[in-house]
Design a protein around this nucleic acid. Sequence first.
RNA 1: GCGCUUGUGGCUCAAUUGGAUAGAGCAUCAGACUUCGGAUCUGAGGGUUAGAGGUUCGAGUCCUCUCAGGCGUACCA
Length: 565
Amino acid sequence: MKLKSQINNVIKDAFKNAGIEYEPMSVSEATKPEFGDYQFNGAMALSKKLGKNPREIAQNILDNMELTKVVNKAQIAGPGFINLWINPDWLALECEKAISDDRLGISKNDKPQKVVVDYSGPNMAKQMHVGHLRSTIIGDTLSNLLTFLGDEVIRQNHIGDWGTQFGMLIAYLEMKDEDGLVSLKDLEQFYKDAKGEFDANADFANRAREYVVKIQSGDEHCLELWKNFIDISLGHCEEVYGKLNVNLTRDDVRAESFYNDSLSKVIEVLDDKGILKESNGAKCVFLDGEEIPVIVQKGDGGYLYATTDLAALWYRANELGAKRISYVVDARQGGHFKQVFKVAKDAGFVPEDVKLEHIAFGTMMDKGGKPFKTRDGGTVKLIDLLDEAVIKAKETIKNRDEYTSQQIDELAKIIGIGAVKYADLAINRESNYIFNWDKMLSFEGNTSLYMQYAYARIQSIFRKYNSTIDGKIIISDELEHRLAVMLLRFEDVLSRSAEDASPNQITTYLYELVTLFMRFYEQNPILKDGVKDDIKMSRLKLADLTAKTIKQGLDILGIKVVDKL
RNA sequence: GCGCUUGUGGCUCAAUUGGAUAGAGCAUCAGACUUCGGAUCUGAGGGUUAGAGGUUCGAGUCCUCUCAGGCGUACCA
């Protein structure tokens, strides 16, 4: 249900009837319950244009407004706000429609777009660490969300599988095991050992350098070892994706190396367009007003990540046909993307109408506000963090004797991983945030457990009721009215969240919804003695739609729900 | 130096993209249980939105300056 546009239509009609020729600004949600459900603030803005005072304009709009089906009450307040109340009968009807639809009444985009979402991007030489968490889950949420809204999403995992360090790793892999079939149990350790050998052993270091050349010139034996290494390394990532409940598969992998053959072409095209300049031996593109150029080829002939990104942009816009390309990457790379996007458009790698965006996010900090590290100052491996989350989640489970140990494990996974993901997604992605176990595993406040608890409670009601629902929704008091409006706002929230690529709009909404539901539930008994049958049915239906909305919302965030906590 | 970015109660975060008296949670204090799961709900105190100007009918939000922090700044990704 596109609730806001329904209200906007009422305003638009009123404008037409009143003979106001301007396009009205959109209504917004009322800031307080006593101001109704929605408010129109456009009368003040029109004051200057029309040369009348705002209240007079508001009155004119009001006089020409149809107050029946959708909006059944409107009032002028303050300097010229128009407060709007939605017809409860209409609300009830729309909620009914949402319940009986498996998409909760949410339409699919009638103009679906092809969207590339580039996220996760682990480096194959190292274990995934906490720095990869945000990219992985924000990107995954955005992909889930756009898919749900009907776009054609192409997930791209731009893994780092190319570069000088691989010569060292391959040489070490061969040294440890002739066949190169070593199981890289601890990638981090393997990297350290290889580096140690590289620094201590000149012979080895030379061999490593030779390997770089060999891999790049396509030596079969070396390529075999390299592929093997990447394969094992990717397996580690998949383990993490599995634990995180993230929808990334091998099919989504387009590694850096995938673009190797296109790199010389990138340089060629830039040269043809006349925007390539040589500076200090390197090939560069200088952008207007910027002192520092984009270097696309080093003095020694090597290519850089800007070159690969340009090749990737070309591929995504032309081969994949994307109309929106979203890079979910750390905010620190803002300068890089700004430049690369500009070059790509200038050089015609990407058509003008394609939207390029850097979905930037801030850094995860510890309690003291310093970047998140282990006690000895190293990076925290993502897999360790997730395992710890599950262990901590297990400790929070009450009444453990009611479950089998297998059930507890399963529950702990859902709770622990959900808590980590929710805590991250609930924060405005552009700001840095403080990682806090106690806060994220709390049942209070805007946490996944508060949502899970509400969901489980509703399921518990239905277990107890254990019968079919036969009746209609009747909006009988203010809380029910507000709950119904909130439920119908879901689609607007999702659209906005998709547009801005901001998952926290979904979490904020869910929190408001659940808070409202808890109040409703506290005040309006459902199954207690003395509740009349038609009221009981209506409240069961509102509870049902609330549960479905929570579930759908969390599902987009990649968080599972359980019927019983 | 230049560029980007952040600054909101003691703490952690919101604020419908310029709208009415800046909202939540934690913590503090005070209430509500013969529990439809109290892991809940109700209420109170706590704010010059870093500071100073400006634009506007209207500013936490936009512009300018100042202060404080973070990040980036030519051959790593």
